[in-house]
């Protein structure tokens, strides 16, 4: 490299001068964003962007962080505007495309969401998580087979991590890779984790689907009087369906709704593998319509409902 004076080079490359106040507002916004103080963060980003003198890379992040903050505040329309402003500064940025896709999906604009995910995949075709997002979106679009294909691609592209992940197990379950799912759930159930009981429920369902016995040995250390203990008791032959649904309805309204969703799904799956198609169809149908989309049961419920209605 030539011996060129840095100051001279900098004079050529430095952008227009930044207003100290804008930059301070940006930093304050980022710190509030990190603390989860979304409203305060938005106010600071508003001020940072108002002077229109930040370097492009800083404007990018001000728009992106403001979009993320607005998402947390359920201001989806203005979040989409900010994501779009970020993309204007850095087209093809995968994280922004996938985030805007989520915002579009949240407002029911499924085709715009799909277009963003397609663009993200075009930009980084080997990023597995984008296919996972598109798999979920395709279910909402009523395209279950495309969804299954995307889920398969996602599994093939995701890095090999700790095999004890229930999320990976559910993906394997959805695409029919039950031997892999069995290992995922078995490992996850062995973890000292408050959610290990859910991994065990999935492990039990997988074993039943594979024609094996319910795995009593690996039941996590969990007080089965607490939710979702009644479902585990059903699987172990220690409780009846009615007991499960009675327990699910207990508690504060939001919690009870979640529990009922889970009861519908797990009992429905249980019936499905115990040759009660009619009972399974009814309960899985309820789970598919009532479970919140952020529940792990949502996607398998959609898939199985589609399969049962064919």
């Amino acid at each position: 490299m030539k011996s060129i004076g840095l100051a001279a080079l900098m004079a050529l490359t430095v952008a227009a001068p930044v207003n100290a106040a804008s930059y301070d507002n940006l930093n304050a916004g980022i710190q509030l964003y990190n603390l989860g103080q979304w409203t305060g963060a938005v106010e600071q980003f508003d001020k940072a962007l108002a002077a229109d003198d930040l370097a492009p890379s800083l404007r990018f992040i001000a728009h992106f962080d403001r979009a993320q903050s607005r998402m947390r505040l359920s201001q989806f329309g203005s979040a989409i505007e900010d994501y779009s402003a970020s993309l204007a500064l850095r087209p093809g940025e995968v994280q922004v495309l996938t985030s805007r896709a989520s915002a579009y999906a949240a407002t029911g604009k499924l085709e715009q969401a799909a277009a963003d995910l397609d663009s993200a995949i075009a930009a980084r075709p080997k990023l597995g998580f984008i296919y996972g997002m598109r798999a979920a979106l395709n279910i909402k679009r009523g395209q279950t087979e495309k969804s299954r294909e995307d889920m398969k691609t996602s599994l093939a592209l995701l890095p090999e991590r700790d095999s004890g992940s229930s999320g990976i197990g559910i993906a394997n379950w959805i695409v029919g890779q039950l031997d892999d799912a069995e290992k995922n759930f078995s490992d996850a159930a062995d973890k000292k984790d408050p959610h290990a009981i859910y991994a065990w429920l999935w492990y039990a369902l997988t074993e039943v689907r594979l024609g094996k016995a319910v795995p009593r040995r690996s039941l996590p250390d969990f007080d089965l009087k607490n939710w979702p203990g009644p479902i585990a008791n059903l699987f172990l032959g220690n409780a009846a369906q009615d007991t499960v649904f009675a327990a699910a309805a207990q508690g504060e309204a939001n919690a009870a709704n979640g529990q009922v969703c889970e009861a519908n799904f797990y009992v429905g799956e249980w019936l499905l593998h115990h040759r009660d198609q009619a009972g399974a169809r009814s309960l899985i149908g309820k789970a598919a319509s009532d479970c919140p989309t952020n529940f792990i049961e949502w996607m398998p419920a959609q898939m199985d409902q589609a399969g049962l209605s064919q």
Binding site: G5, L6, N27, N34, S57, F60, F64
Partner: peptide
């Protein structure tokens, strides 16, 4: 060192800021 004390840049890079700064 350069004879006139100038700095010798080896790489001049555009930083990108992540969401957490």
């Amino acid at each position: 060192q350069t004879p006139d004390c100038r700095l010798l840049p080896k790489a001049m890079l555009e930083m990108q800021t992540m969401p957490d700064g």
